[in-house]
Nucleic acid binder design. Structure first.
Length: 560
RNA sequence: CGGAGUGUAGCGCAGCUUGGUAGCGUAUCUGGUUUGGGACCAGGUGGUCGAAGGUUCAAAUCCUUUCACUCCGACCA
């Protein structure tokens, strides 16, 4: 294609609401355009990239034996009422009424529709297993859309749903999907890691997230430095430790005036935060509960929720009503249940609040205190890996894929049964596999850019080759050579962009680099004098001169 | 929803405290000079200052209301 036929609105400056590099570059390179919060149009260059990502996903999914379908974005409330999610889902589910005042929603995901389909058409166990996928627009009315297409309200997802007679069959497909996802992310040129994950509200046990490693990632991922163990920080589980210390000190009350944070107290007493215990008060459906953690640890709210159900932090007034002093809460004066984190319960001679304004206890110990133990905290760097091998490192990741085993949650609710071998109805077991297609593009840019712009891997670049003729509109010699090279590339099936604008060289160079096109051919009178064309790869600063006669085979040798 | 902030030309911003002709850079258009790294000169186009109401002879500026957007927390591909 020719640049003058395309809308490529590149910009020098990014709008100041673009926080992360991929968002800035996608706007600056003219890939997307914002319509409203969390809603983006894909402009010609962006759409080309999107279609390439989709094509790779489609090819690999087809290869895995999955079949493509396309389900509606608008879905009737009845289906969601049947699965129970009409009530469960919060305001993230965008609901509306049609002209007959019937209730509908925009699909944030498609479990209901696909399960309904399966219930309708899959009758016999002989038809199983089956794996359906689609590449479709989703709508989630996110509380806080941000980072451009990284977290938008409308986005494109590849979602797949598999149906099985038993867990065994599900596991097989799950493993195939795991491999398929690796194939996809490899072809997309991403540096990623599969990690163990919490399956969240959707349920199920076996759950793996695929994270692209990037500092801007919204998730923290833990790795062992000595084994393959990798998990989302939410999921890293710790087991009970054996106590290695003995209480030696005697308890003492010390004045710690106005030192209400662990950081302040540790500094003031000149001790490590690990030697402190902090106590948090939460409110559950059964009343109040106290949670004790080591000073340097953070509460993992998911673990707490799994333990006690829905909860919230007690307000200042509620803490007061329990006769506790916020900032100086200890473990001795509690009138409520106490749950102590495994790594806090093995401490000896620790520091905690004295349950008295402006005082802490030193040399405190657990003797004589009644409590339960549990795993309550987030992992920190340096923790022993849960598999016992090595220590944990923490990195940031962007979740681009998630595969999990749904079990029978939807198939049961929506009666997706088949007639089994015995002639009796069997509830199918389901798996579910998602890839954030639009997010993949942002993630790729997070990983592949420099100060000049995007560096797309060839597999998803909007064009493979850009031809930059200098003085295209003045020099007939340059124009003829450029047109000839353009023709040759097209005939050879190469995706080529000819920059035929009446622009100065600098502008054309800057734009092609901003867009991240992997291969650049420059034609100019000076090169033409020697019968040469200049080649430069986007990811390599060196320029190479190539004989014009050999240029096509040269380009072909460069293309993957 | 809670907390913080911003709305002035396509984009980036100034002007607002102390009310009085709508401004800068960039982009865009015309003409000319340039031409291998976002050029230069000259001349143009483009804004109901987020919206509504109020105060005032006079409002981008002061007051009230409202909307949108962004940032920090819970959601998630």
């Amino acid at each position: 294609m020719k640049t003058t036929n395309l809308l490529i609105p590149t910009q020098k400056e990014a709008p100041n609401d673009a926080q992360i590099i991929s968002h800035q570059l996608m706007i600056r390179a003219g890939l997307i355009s914002k319509l409203a919060s969390g809603l983006y149009s894909y402009l010609p260059m962006g759409l080309r990239v999107l279609k390439k990502v989709e094509a790779i996903i489609r090819e690999e999914m087809n290869k895995s034996g999955a079949q493509e379908v396309l389900m509606p974005v608008a879905q009737p409330a009845e289906l969601w009422q049947e699965s129970g999610r009409w009530e469960q889902y919060g305001p993230e589910l965008l609901r509306f009424n049609d002209r007959h005042n019937r209730k509908f929603c925009l699909g944030p995901t498609h479990e209901e529709v696909i399960t309904h389909l399966a219930a309708q058409y899959i009758r016999s166990y002989k038809q199983l297993p089956m794996n359906f996928y689609q590449i479709q627009t989703k709508f989630r009315d996110e509380i806080r859309p941000r980072f451009g297409v990284m977290r938008s309200r409308e986005f494109i997802m590849k979602d797949a749903y598999s149906f099985h007679l038993d867990q065994n069959s599900l596991q097989q497909t799950f493993d195939v999907m795991h491999q398929t996802y690796c194939n996809i992310f490899n072809r997309l040129g991403l540096d990623y890691r599969p990690v163990l994950a919490d399956s969240g509200s959707i349920g199920g046990d076996n759950s793996v997230e695929f994270h692209v490693l990037a500092d801007s990632g919204e998730d923290a991922i833990c790795f062992s430095d000595r084994s393959d163990y990798a998990a989302n920080i939410e999921k890293v589980a710790f087991s009970k430790q054996s106590k290695t210390c003995k209480a030696k000190a005697s308890e003492e009350k010390v004045l710690t005036k106005k030192k209400t944070s662990i950081e302040d107290v540790a500094q003031f007493l000149n001790i490590n935060q690990e030697q402190c215990v902090k106590t948090l008060i939460i409110k559950t459906s059964d009343g109040f509960t106290a949670l004790a953690l080591r000073g340097d640890h953070e509460l993992n709210e998911i673990k707490v929720q799994n333990l006690v159900g829905e909860f919230e932090f007690a307000s200042d007034d509620e803490i007061k009503s329990l006769n506790l002093k916020k900032g100086f809460i200890g473990v001795k004066a509690l009138s409520v249940n106490l749950i102590v984190d495994y790594s806090a319960s093995v401490l000896c001679d620790f520091v905690c609040g004295a349950d008295e304004w402006d005082y802490h206890l030193t040399g405190a110990n657990w003797q004589g205190i009644e409590f339960n133990e549990a795993d309550l905290r987030n992992a920190v760097e340096g923790d022993v890996s849960p598999d016992g091998k090595g220590r944990l490192l923490i990195k940031r990741g962007i979740e681009v894929g998630h595969i999990f085993q749904l079990g029978t949650k939807y198939s049961q609710a929506m009666k997706a049964n088949v007639i089994g071998e015995s002639g009796k109805a069997v509830t199918t077991t389901m798996g579910c596999y998602g890839i954030g297609v639009t997010r993949v593009i942002a993630a790729s840019i997070e990983q592949n850019h420099d100060d000049r712009g995007i560096i797309f891997p060839e597999s998803i670049a909007p064009f493979q080759v850009v031809i930059v003729p200098i003085n295209y509109n003045k020099s007939t010699r340059v124009k003829d050579l450029a047109d000839q090279l353009y023709r040759q590339c097209l005939d050879a099936g190469i995706e080529v962009l000819l920059d035929d604008r009446k622009e100065r060289a600098g502008i054309m160079f800057a734009d092609s680099e901003l867009l991240g096109i992997p291969h650049r051919m420059v034609l100019s009178d000076t090169h033409a004098d020697n019968g040469n064309v200049e080649y430069k790869a986007r990811n390599n600063p060196d320029k190479v001169e190539v004989k014009f006669d050999e240029v096509l085979s040269f380009i072909q040798s460069k293309l993957g």
